[in-house]
Design a binder for these strands. Structure first.
Lengths: 216, 216
DNA sequence: GTCAACGTTTGTGTATACAAGAATGGCATT
DNA sequence: AATGCCATTCTTGTATACACAAACGTTGAC
């Protein structure tokens, strides 16, 4: 319970939303949440305010908070921006690579290889996230890194669905290999291009994604 | 006073921070703010929470809120990301341009021309912002547009300083012309490249910017 | 004289109470 | 029977009060 109740609640509710425990469109009642978590309404409101600022929920004056339903089109737009930011991170990483970052990328890349070989989709999902985060960090741009992590977090549930698609695991890993090669070779433009398409594939295969979502 | 006091306060304090009324590093006392705006502490706290989520201030548990000092390096990083996002917006605008967006770009571009010709730096500053926003809107990506507007807002004070630099006005406008040409020609790659450098110039001329900031 | 410890003060964190607005349901009227 | 208006109730928005933690100052001891 991270220091103060408000932030803890924010994370708690955020996770609940991202894991669809609170469905899009659902109304979040402050009193109900307060009872559920055993706190008063004040920290609940603070948490909701922050989630509103992040864009996960919408607070309509005097009418309560509802979980935002991004909708397929908006999700596509978010992937589009994510691809661009990751591309930038890759290009910077290639130019600025130092030993620590290189080691971090190698390590996470290795873990991805193992998960992919084992066909363990859940493990790969986690390792993949670490791999991408290693690239963000390697960009040596704190601000870019923060933006990437935040957007990555919001897109997390959709990425997860995406990985369930057949053959995506091995395809994803081979794309990782090419990305690592480009970054280690110091080829910023190539790293940018590869990462953009790697992330963008989520968009190209968008019909699969929509189908997976509808299936739930 | 937009509907509820919390949001009004958020905007109010945000403006105060962006206009340096509250200096970076300054501690924001909840009680003082509450008295100043004639409200209780509760909405003040809500406003501070939101500003923390946006990244303008930092709330350290039990130690209050301080205005974040981005520092030259971080500002540079923000311009770097801004350049990337604007580039994407330009490239999408070129591909997806419709009549309404085209008209909006033409209109704002025209106003920039007048301000630049008149040498009116303050007017150009405003018209320039509208011009860029017209491009964001033309991208037809709501999410990208929101991200751009938000980041633009945070960089606003630095852009303003930038425009004071000699000759920047006419240089900026001629770059605008090339950008408009590329977008209207449907050349997404060229629009992206031009916008990236247009915004990035703020970074290249970074020493000027730092000097201007130090001068305050 | 200096350092440490304890107490006071100031300010954040949480809870609760109160007020105002919106939604819903019932009753009356057409 | 249907529609419109009014009242009640529920929920949000704001204020205030209380509790706890941290920082600073003062005092005492070494």
């Amino acid at each position: 319970m991270s220091e103060n109740v408000g932030r803890w609640l924010r994370d708690e509710i955020e996770n609940a939303i991202l894991s669809y425990e609170f469905a899009p469109g659902e109304r979040l009642d402050e009193t109900v949440l307060a009872n559920r978590f055993g706190v008063s309404r004040t920290p609940v409101r603070e948490a909701l305010m922050q989630l509103d600022a992040i864009g996960l929920i919408e607070i309509r004056p005097r009418r309560g908070a509802i979980v935002i339903d991004p909708g397929p089109h908006r999700i596509y737009e978010m992937f589009e921006v994510m691809a661009e930011l990751e591309g930038l991170a890759g290009s910077l990483a290639a130019r600025r690579l130092d030993k620590a970052s290189r080691d971090a990328i190698t390590a996470t890349h290795g873990r991805c290889e193992q998960s992919a070989a084992a066909g363990d989709s859940d493990a790969y999902y986690y390792d993949n996230e670490e791999f991408h985060k290693a690239i963000y960090a390697a960009s040596r741009s704190d601000f870019l890194q923060e933006q990437c992590v935040q957007l990555h977090r919001r897109l997390r549930p959709y990425r997860r669905l995406q990985l369930r698609v057949r053959n995506r695991l091995s395809t994803s890993f081979s794309e990782h290999c090419a990305i690592v090669d480009a970054i280690f070779a110091g080829d910023g433009d190539e790293a940018r291009r590869l990462l953009r398409t790697h992330v963008g594939i989520q968009g190209e295969r968008f019909s699969d994604l929509v189908a997976s979502m509808a299936a739930r």
